[in-house]
Design a protein around this nucleic acid. Structure first.
Lengths: 138, 138
DNA sequence: TCTTGAACCTCTAGTCACTAGAGACATTAC
DNA sequence: GTAATGTCTCTAGTGACTAGAGGTTCAAGA
């Protein structure tokens, strides 16, 4: 059994965040010492690692809740879990696409000023003001 | 001169968001009718278009504030504006990189279940629980 | 001119996933 | 025993909005 600080160290999740997850129902209510401090065991550690990993992958708290619930009621959990992961994957791909478009425009914009002395007006500001200077929609 | 609703239509920025931008100082305080309703002109429209475009590109409210200030004090604005754009570009590139790693892992995870009948345990949940199954760090 | 209904006003509170701080109590090391 | 560190709960703040309540103003038609 170890303290919340120890759990925090091992999982690299901050102490207030652990308490937050408990409040949100992602973690079960921890056991307490006689002095009301939380104590955890290996199961708690694993659960929190799972949550942290899923958060790192960009799953929302809500999605993680669903995944945990599936884990606890394992009938047909595999298909449902795959579905959550797949739908999340689609989100990620959309995000990547948008960011790439954005990268292109920012690259173009931020090149405008420092080369050939287009110094009359600032190209960055002009580009932002006039959407027609963009290559594409966004 | 036109109303906030009209401005909203033309810029595709929602009415409460326009008021929010005014409160945050991105937009100057609008002129008012005798009945206290906001009225805008072409300048207001252009300013809001600038803001919307910059937000679409993922600039924070704070960064946009800086860009606007630069615009209003144009001495050396070009270098400073380019710097803001460039630093933002770096952020974007980091995000793209992270998302791509993530895409790989999610692709791998979501393929786990529906093929060859690895049905004993759910591969999605196992992958999330055990970081060692990942290809790389994140 | 009057009326009706849409648009507008301010203000407060809610969203998500935390983070920060206050003030009090518990545990641990010496 | 004492001091330092850790932990507790609670409230409030973050960013960039969004939603809703309850009231006022505007524009168009009769």
């Amino acid at each position: 059994m170890f303290s919340i600080g120890e759990l925090s160290k091992r999982t690299k999740v901050k102490v207030p965040t652990i308490r937050y997850y408990e409040e949100m129902g992602l973690l079960p209510e921890a056991e307490r010492t006689s002095g009301n401090q939380r104590r955890y065991n290996k199961a708690g550690l694993e659960r929190l690692s799972f949550i942290r990993h899923a958060r790192d992958l960009g799953f929302s708290i809500e999605a993680i809740s669903s995944l945990i619930e599936l884990h606890e009621h394992p009938d047909r959990s595999c298909e449902a879990a795959t579905e959550i992961a797949t739908s999340h994957l689609e989100d990620v791909r959309v995000k990547i696409k948008r960011l790439k478009t954005l990268e292109k425009e920012l690259t173009r914009i931020s090149k405008g000023c420092d080369g050939e002395g287009v110094s009359e007006d600032c190209y960055v500001l002009a580009s932002l003001a006039d959407h027609n200077l963009c290559d594409r929609d966004h």
